[in-house]
Amino acid sequence: MVLKNKKQALLFLLPALLFISVFLIVPLFRTVYYGFTSWHNFSPNKTFIGLENYKKLLNDRVLWISIKNTGILIVGVLIFQIGVSMLLAICVDSIKHGMRFFRTVYFFPIVISATAIGLMFSLIYKYDYGLLNYFVTIFGGEREVWLTKERAIFMVLIPVCWQYVGFYFVVFLTGISKIPDDICESAALDGIRAWQKAFYITIPLLKDILVSNLVLVVSGCFRVFDMVYIITGGGPMNSSELLSSYMYRKAFMDYNVGYASSIAIVMIILGLALTGVMRTLANKIQSE
């Protein structure tokens, strides 16, 4: 222990504790309370209405669309962010030259803000002057509306996955570099093939990192907001609405703060439940 004096340690922890209390803990408890109120237009008057907001939520079609879309997002990022980033890391680790180049290229989207990426992809998808339709017309095709009710959420999924693949790629690559060389060398002497090395050595030894990444990815899905807000605005016909974007719409566009607070609570409960499931799974995997 660096600080033997507990008072000193507490003193240093106090500012952070104060910050977290003021900006996180207190608002969280207040949000729980607001979820039980009818509060419109940020008015000074709130009326306690018990579980009314939650009863309304059960019949809210958009909420269920948002939950379904958040589920699609989680499955999508599990497959494409975790899967692709692991694949890329294994591939890049196996090459002799250019590892630094690929690491930089794949990591690059992380340094761009989500808003900028959202704007970029919204321009790509535009019907009138979008890049996708530009290529379609170059090859003699007809321009297409890309953000339709059926595929809007998947079109949002693309930039979300693309942005964070690089992050998990670097984490996996770092994990691979920690695998002892002697294991790989002895396997090579036994004539192991590349795919066998990946499945029987690399992936099992990356178990800890995989578990951490899974937890990060799932909890990260609840934070996705800007991409949807910028690319589709939750439309068309609420088909790409996420819990986060729906909560924002209710609070800051419809000014129904009480109802938005109840959506926030649903988000927290779902997030905690999913993280709990992931942790249980992680513990199970690690104990095997």
């Binding site: 535009k126 019907y127 009138d128 321009r143 509306v145 953000l147 809007a152 605005g233 068309p236």
Partner: peptide, 9 residues
């Protein structure tokens, strides 16, 4: 209306 009216700002 424009073909992309449903998502057109």
């Amino acid at each position: 209306f424009p073909k992309d009216a449903a998502t057109l700002a």
